[in-house]
Write a protein that binds this DNA or RNA. Sequence first.
RNA 1: GGGGACGUAGCUCAACUGGUUAGAGCACCGGCCUGUCACGCCGGAGGUUGCGGGUUCGAGCCCCGUCGUCCUCGCCA
Length: 586
Amino acid sequence: MLKRTHNCGELTAKQVGETVILNGWVDAYRDFGGLVFIDLRDRYGITQVVFEPDQGEALMNAARELRSEFCLGVKGVVAKRLAGKENPKLATGEVEVRVTELSVFNKSATPPFDIQAGDANEEVRLKYRYLDLRRPELQQVFVMRHTMNQVMRKSLSDQGFLEFETPILGRSTPEGARDFLVPSRLHKGHFYALPQSPQLYKQILMMSGMDRYFQIARCFRDEDLRANRQPEFTQLDVEMSFVQDEDIMTAMEPLVANLAKEFTGSAPTLPLPRIDYKDAMERYGVDRPDLRFGVEIHDLADIAPKTTFQVIQIALSNGGRVRGLCAPGAGAKYSRKDLDGLTAYVGEFGAKGLIWLKVEDEGFAGPTAKFFPAEVQAEMKERFGAKTGDMIFAVAGPEAVTHQALSNLRIRLGAELELYDPKSYHYSWVVRFPLLHWDAEEKRYVAEHHPFTMPLPEDLPLLETDPSKVRAQAYDLVINGEECGGGTIRCHDPAIQARIFELLGLTPEQAQEKFGFLLSALSFGAPPHGGIALGVDRLVMLFAGLTNIRDCIAFPKTARGYDLMTGAPGEVDFKQLRELYVRVVE
RNA sequence: GGGGACGUAGCUCAACUGGUUAGAGCACCGGCCUGUCACGCCGGAGGUUGCGGGUUCGAGCCCCGUCGUCCUCGCCA
């Protein structure tokens, strides 16, 4: 076998004159009859190799047979290219390899799509994922992903964290996402569940005195997919003992800074900003604000009495809200048609309409400007810091609608008006989430994060009087408006944990049945503890500038949960089902 | 479960208002070519228009159903 002495990305003028062997795939071939050029590709780069008649007819004939994606070994002499024939687009473009010996390891069928172009339909790319993954663009993403894993391991290991593995076959627990179930052969009618996260195991490890845990853990949730959501995904899972919420954030920040440094070239100043959940919702309408730009949302309820605008009066009298934001420089940017488009856009989030006001020297302009007297206009200009040429957008309606409509509008305006550098990164913590919210349909409280979250100490009394007002010791890591991780301090007090189970509608018997092991472990001197999990796939997506999580997962699934390469999920033999006591019903 | 976009040659796309034999570029096959790097030139082959039904003298185009891909609401992180 012609074993490589060099890879396809490393030859330069330094090796001129050396005999080398390269292994790789035919990226392109250019056949001149009397002269054949091959671009040989591996994951390190591309090197041009050339076949010339002086090496004999047999070699030339063999070279003329080469086609795209043939897998080759070539032996030859590194030569400086003819003067003026260098290719500045290639790292190896100064030189070429004059081939003396060729070994075709394997021919290739004609590729089903143009691997170099990379513009094929995703369906076909996923079916032939092994070919898609030959593309340098994709290979770079997985190099990055590898590096990320290394940075995470090193950062945490340097801080004294121990890497653990926890079971994939666990038990189904109530709350959270739908479980993937695995039927037990040994126990008729019983099922394992794949972990939604290693949550309880890592808490138990704290109770075992492991003190600082981490795992790059695969998690499974049987819910519908999205551009940034797959049914199996990877978390950097972390847990620490003897800590409060600030300790977790402080412990994670060096890691975040290391990732930022590695992938963006610059690390944020620490500590990262903390924003109260409540402030985030008020100022940005969302719990994961994109803070690469300003444009805060302001309330307009107080000006309502000074206008004659029915829409506003009605929203307020129905217990809703009127809120708006100021888009700098939007006045000249948006045509009437564009504004109709923005109105339709907020409509997607339930807004009945969009109030838009152009700020001009003479006052507001727009179809609803007449409802705002001069005095109110001055007040609004001041509140929004609006200048001539800006636009004020406002939405009236139920609180959730104003939040959704304005937060999404804000993101859209930020991009369209180029209010930030798309290559920039902003990191922040959103803290003090609500512990619970009331689910009207199920007629019970539902955990905002998960059922093991510790309330803020000062809010503990509210657990008895007004549970939905209880704030949690919870924190999310937000980067560029993406939720990249979240965690909580856990309940290490069995009594508080029992009270929360009660609020969640679990009887003591049910709590015992589902979480007996946890309650038991809590009763044996459990340390105060807490942790966090970062979404590895999302971090790769973010740092690689991708808009879709499939491109940073080697073998992803489609929106319907198929693996188009293997055909999973597939049918199984009746015999397999019988062993598992499982029957398919129509 | 709901909404939207899409599905035509191996790939990327075109085909007027429903009208002759469904076209182009790339890829593929054959031939020519000694300095290309998106090589070039000549020639050729390649189609169940996702699938099933319907309307029509006539359907890639209209209607119904179905499957698949993407985006999204619900759900979920």
